[in-house]
Every structure is written in C-alpha cells, then in structure tokens.
C-alpha cells in the first residue's frame, strides 16, 4: 500500500512539469486596433453642387502618432447637404463603417455642435431617422446652413453616441464611440 502511494506521488511529481504550457516566446500579433481610423465630412453646396470635404485621421489608432485633422472651410449664407463617412483604413481593403451604423441605427446617434466663433453662424439639422417609436435622428445625413456674416473661426464637435442596452433618447448616451472636433472657418 505504501509503495502504491509513493508511486502515485512520484507520478504527480513527474506529471506536474509535463502539463501543457502555452509558449510565451511566440507572441501573436492578433490585436484588433481601434476600428475607426478616419472620419470625413462631405458637404455638397445645394446651389452650386460644389463639394467640400474635411477629414480627421489617426492611422495608427490611439497613442503613437497624434491624429491629424483638416480645417473645414464653409462659405457664408449657404446650405450644404452633408454626410459623414467612417473608415477603417488599417485593414486592406479599407472597411467602410457606415454600413454598421445604418444596421444599428436604433442604438446610435450623431450630435453635431458648432462652438466658438461659428456657434451662431452654423446650424445643423440631421435628416435621417431611425425606426424607433418615436423615431429619432441618426445623423449620417444632415443639412448644414451657414448664415451671412463672418469671417469667423470655431470648432465643429462631432459625437457618436452609443446606446448599449438602454433606450436611445434625444440626449447623448453613457458611451461615446466618437468624440472629435474639426476646426471650422466660415468665410
């Protein structure tokens, strides 16, 4: 009996180091980078059909190189038909993320807030609606109006709010997927 006990113990002793162990010397590079690497506003002048764009880019995701952003130039006294384009350029081919927002429109909402010198010159009305009851704006499409006056410089705040597990409301939710500011000049 004692012998069998010692055999058991010895077995444990030898089995112990032989247990499978993951190898740390071969790290996987299987990291999911922040999906949104660029945000672009595309504005079409309702009269002239001239197109203006302005982008915010952070090619390497959070940290590393700082993001770069264009200044958005707007003419005074115009109406623009606007849309926002979200891309993940860290993968090939580039992934257009607008599709996901359209599919999840009932849990997402964009908020556009003119600030600083343009806060009284720019008005934005979101034109697309979700299928909630009552229906709420989504904000992938919008109408941007500039009043006469200027020239003046300010910021256009863009927030994408995500309502995860809670009802979508007219105010921003507890979690922001996007929160950036584009320097904007009305002239």
């Amino acid at each position: 009996m004692r012998n069998s006990f010692f055999i058991l113990m010895t077995t444990i002793l030898f089995v112990l180091p032989a247990c499978k162990e993951k190898d740390p010397t071969a790290p996987s590079d299987d990291i999911e980078h922040e999906v949104i690497t660029s945000v672009t506003l595309v504005l079409r002048d309702s009269v002239t059909s001239a197109v203006r764009t302005a982008s915010w880019r952070d090619a390497d995701g959070p940290g590393g190189a700082a993001p770069v952003a264009d200044t958005l130039f707007l003419a005074a006294g115009r109406t623009y038909l606007g849309s926002i384009l979200l891309l993940n350029e860290s993968v090939t081919p580039t992934d257009t993320l607008n599709v996901e927002i359209e599919e999840q429109a009932n849990q997402h909402q964009f908020f556009y807030t003119p600030t600083g010198g343009i806060s009284s010159l720019v008005g934005i009305e979101r034109t697309d609606r979700d299928t909630n009851t009552p229906s709420l704006p989504v904000g992938l499409q919008f109408k941007l109006r500039t009043s006469g006056g200027g020239p003046s410089t300010g910021g256009l705040g863009i927030v994408l709010s995500h309502y995860d597990g809670i009802p979508k409301t007219a105010t921003p939710g507890p979690e922001s997927d996007i929160d950036i500011v584009l320097v904007t000049r009305v002239q």
């Binding site: 180091p17 247990c19 996901e100 999840q104 997402h108 995500h162």
Partner: peptide
C-alpha cells in the same frame, strides 16, 4: 513544489457599432 496556472479573461463591453466582441 507547485504548479499554478492563472487564466484571466476580461470582456469589455466596448462594442464597436454594436458588433459584439466575442473575444
């Protein structure tokens, strides 16, 4: 003598556009 294996998985609720992060 001891062998211990600590396995910790932390799931973030940070979903990108509602895609559930399964990893």
């Amino acid at each position: 003598l001891g062998r211990q294996e600590n396995h910790r998985q932390e799931y973030d609720a940070l979903r990108i556009f509602g895609q559930i992060q399964t990893r």
